[in-house]
């Protein structure tokens, strides 16, 4: 029952995001944006555990996901050789950034504006570090962990659920690295490290069954 409920809420947040980012001209030329369900599930679990009102929690997750999609869209800029698509990719990301600010501004989310802005700054600093390339494996994993979890960590800070930050860091690091070549020793070692951390944290964290299922799936997938 609870599992069904969470999935319904995830779908509802996804639908809201899809509606918000729909733009007739962008839709005509760009592929639909990927919306990471795990991120929504994780955030809703965290906010429920922090006793945040359901509607408010969904608002927070909706806003955070708009930022995530904006940043992810800008990561794709170099993937498009065609000038027109590259131009639209830049502008789509900018539009989604504007939309998250508009939502918070209209819902008096001043404190969240600051926290999310801090996260975006941090994420872009780490992306620049990664892009420069002169980082060792450990530093690279740290950068990736921050890039993947900074927004959720700021949300955790906002709702006084900082105990979820470490969990978010390792969960999304593992998710990011699960696609990488684990034959490389440094990656394989770090994946094992993330899994150990997540196994330790799993028992100290009350969470929805659906979220647990996603976590087990990720742990299995990374083996």
């Amino acid at each position: 029952m609870v599992l069904e409920q969470l999935q319904k809420r995830i779908e509802a947040v996804k639908e809201r995001i899809e509606q918000a980012i729909t733009h007739p001209y962008l839709c005509r030329y760009m592929n639909p944006r990927m919306i990471d369900e795990d991120r929504i599930a994780f955030s809703l679990s965290m906010l429920d555990a922090a006793n945040i009102d359901r509607n408010i929690a969904e608002d927070y997750v909706f806003t955070m996901m708009l930022i995530q999609i904006a940043l992810d869209t800008h990561d794709e800029v170099d993937e498009h050789e065609a000038m027109h698509l590259r131009q639209l990719t830049v502008l789509a990301g900018d539009l989604y950034s504007g939309l998250y600010y508009q939502f918070l501004a209209n819902n008096h989310g001043m404190a969240l504006i600051r926290l999310f802005a801090e996260a975006i700054k941090e994420i872009n600093v780490q992306k620049i570090r990664l892009q420069r390339g002169n980082v060792d494996a450990i530093e690279r994993f740290r950068c990736l962990g921050t890039i993947e979890s900074a927004l959720i960590c700021k949300l955790a800070q906002y709702v006084n659920a900082e105990n979820w930050s470490e969990f978010a860091y390792y969960f999304f690091s593992l998710k990011r690295l699960s696609d990488e070549n684990k034959k490389e020793k440094a990656v394989a070692d770090y994946v094992e490290h993330c899994k150990r951390k997540l196994n330790d944290l799993l028992h100290s964290q009350p969470m929805h069954e659906d979220m647990k299922g996603r976590l087990y799936h990720l742990l299995d997938q990374s083996t």
Partner: peptide
């Protein structure tokens, strides 16, 4: 890099 710089500066403005 330009995308990241632009995003960083925009975030700073909202901060």
């Amino acid at each position: 890099f330009a995308m990241y710089v632009g995003d960083y500066i925009f975030a700073r403005s909202l901060e």
